[in-house]
Design a protein around this nucleic acid. Structure first.
Lengths: 343, 343
DNA sequence: TGTTAGCACTCAGTCTTCCGGAGTGCTAAT
DNA sequence: ATTAGCACTCCGGAAGACTGAGTGCTAACA
């Protein structure tokens, strides 16, 4: 009677959703009765299904097929019906095992975890590396590559490294580079990257700097190095969606791949998740992304200390095994958090 | 008469290949005559085509369709018939423009170039970042993240950066880290990474080090950091193949994507290309990769000074516009070489 | 009033059949 | 050696029939 829906309607809706998650085929009134042993006739179930369609929870692809759950149904399922299990023992071990890849290239860790998410969930794994902005500055290094070309390495508290090559207009000596590094490292210690950025802007206006070309050059360089254009988005297991019958059509498939290529769109969405710690679920059109109808996204955030660093998750069909995938994403985020923990 | 093939046969083979590259449909004897204005009757062309099929240059999908070029035909085309044009002016400008992305994240440059290759060629772009082994050691940095966790940053002469996090068994101070870095940087200066590796092994056995736990620890760390497991393979534009009619079938498509997921296989192939400087072409089964039938790979190497650093290229259908893509790959490799040039 | 059985109806998917068209190989004439 | 003519093959699309799963509606029933 709660949620404005009769208890029996809920049972039937749940049965339909779960069957559809398994079979990906429209569910008819009789098949549902057989499989769930409800003590109701097919006719009664039909009546209920008609009501559910009226309310927007079900849709029929064509008049004489069965019914298919709508996004609204999945949302209701996830919010009200779903009993989130904890992670399977086997999956948990798999996750732990593959998270413990110390000694690997740092980006490699994110890629590995993305791959792991995809292979454990059988959908697509996605990991957004920490946006540098959210990070705490630790150290900056300058390396002289040529007389006019330097490598700037930026290291955050959590160990993320960002490096880029910058061309200079005039020559510079390695002694000058050391001076610059010392100056910057002293000034910026302990600030978050976004604080660093505004600090640099402020500093550039100060008198002391205006008359010291070396210092102003240092500030200019660090500003360039901080420009956070790196995508840092790892999507793995795209081939998994070939196995899903709902994307058997080449056209649908193409849409999905195009959507995955527009990483900036996805990044924007994931950035929003940063603000809402914990697990987030976007069903179908809820993500407001192009070409993402029929796809769901489950995310969680990983943190370091007080800072929310980044987001990871799984992208699959709306017909996803939510009960299984949600704990996987949740657990993985916690493992990554632990992995990045700075004591 | 040369190459064991009559001049007319060559003309006809060339016409068939070029038509097929455009249309992706089996070519019949009459359509070829219309489009190329040959002063021959369809019947004569049929005779020649039968000969070419006999010789293994053509195949018929079914008895009453036209003919399709075989891998052997493409190989002959590329080796003997093709006049490699130089790059289009427009394409050249596009390549130049997108190569000049100084100030970007270093990995970002490779990704960008891979994307550029895919969008200019309309196939898939592929860039293998320099294998560290081929590189010249420049500098190593240690950063203390926690009391037992350090970040090792390895910088090569060409500005490539490799960084990984390593867990220690016991605590270490930052002074000790500085000593370690100085020791290693002094010892390894100017060696290639593979030389560095053997040097480290040798050093670990020397008496001086055996009794200095700090030094042996330093060697152990650098050894871990040098383990070149990073894939560093950028494949972009996979969605482009959706537009190719020969992969319209979902099954074929899936095979291609599975092939692209097995990056280690591809990397092995590209590693071989490192040994053969300049442009390399693998047609269909020539690559000996699984699931790569129907696909061709065009690669070229980019270098820095005397060292061949890495490989880039384009993957497309065997029915590729070789005359257009080869110069694109070639020119891009040269641009990247120039981009990485250390004066 | 809620539930059930029965029935006529609908429509996607499959299977079959039936051409038309493009292409071939062969033969005979040039 | 080349070409015109001809019979043959086979793919692919269109049209039609059939099947089966599923529905909505109505009337009977508890």
């Amino acid at each position: 009677m709660q949620d404005g829906m009769k208890i029996r309607s809920r049972q039937i809706l749940e049965a339909i959703i779960e069957d559809y998650i398994c079979t990906a085929e429209p569910i008819g009134s009789s098949s549902i009765r057989n499989r769930h042993g409800l003590s109701l006739s097919a006719a009664t179930i039909r009546n209920v299904m008609a009501d559910l369609e009226e309310m927007g929870y079900l849709a029929s692809p064509h008049p004489s097929a069965g019914r298919v759950p709508t996004d609204k149904a999945y949302r209701f399922y996830v919010d009200s019906l779903l009993a989130v299990r904890s992670v399977d023992r086997g999956e948990r071990d798999e996750i732990r095992r593959r998270c413990c890849v110390a000694g690997r290239d740092v980006d490699g860790v994110f890629r590995e975890i993305s791959q792991m998410l995809s292979s454990v969930s059988h959908y697509m794994g996605i990991v957004a590396a920490p946006r540098f902005n959210a990070n705490v500055f630790r150290q900056m290094e300058f390396v002289l590559l040529g007389s006019r070309r330097i490598l700037v390495i930026l290291i955050s508290q959590s160990g993320t490294v960002q490096n880029r090559i910058i061309e200079l207009h005039h020559e510079i000596s390695s002694e000058e580079l050391v001076r610059m590094a010392n100056y910057l490292n002293g000034m910026l210690q302990g600030l978050t990257i976004s604080q660093v950025k505004s600090r640099i802007l402020k500093e550039m206006e100060s008198d002391k700097v205006q008359y010291d070309t070396l210092l102003s050059e240092a500030l200019r360089l660090s500003q360039q190095a901080l420009d956070d254009s790196g995508t840092g988005l790892f999507i793995e297991g795209q081939a998994n969606i070939f196995d899903l019958p709902e994307f058997a059509d080449a056209q649908r498939m193409k849409e999905v791949f195009r959507a995955m290529e527009q990483k900036s769109q996805l990044l924007d969405l994931l950035d929003n998740c940063l603000k809402a710690p914990g697990v987030n679920i976007f069903i179908g059109s809820e993500s407001h992304l192009n070409n993402m109808s029929g796809m769901s996204l489950i995310t969680s955030t990983y943190v370091s200390g007080k800072n929310t660093l980044g987001v990871l998750g799984v992208i699959g069909p709306t017909r996803m095994g939510y009960g299984k995938v949600i704990p996987i994403v949740d657990y993985t985020a916690k493992m990554l958090t632990r992995l990045l923990h700075v004591e």
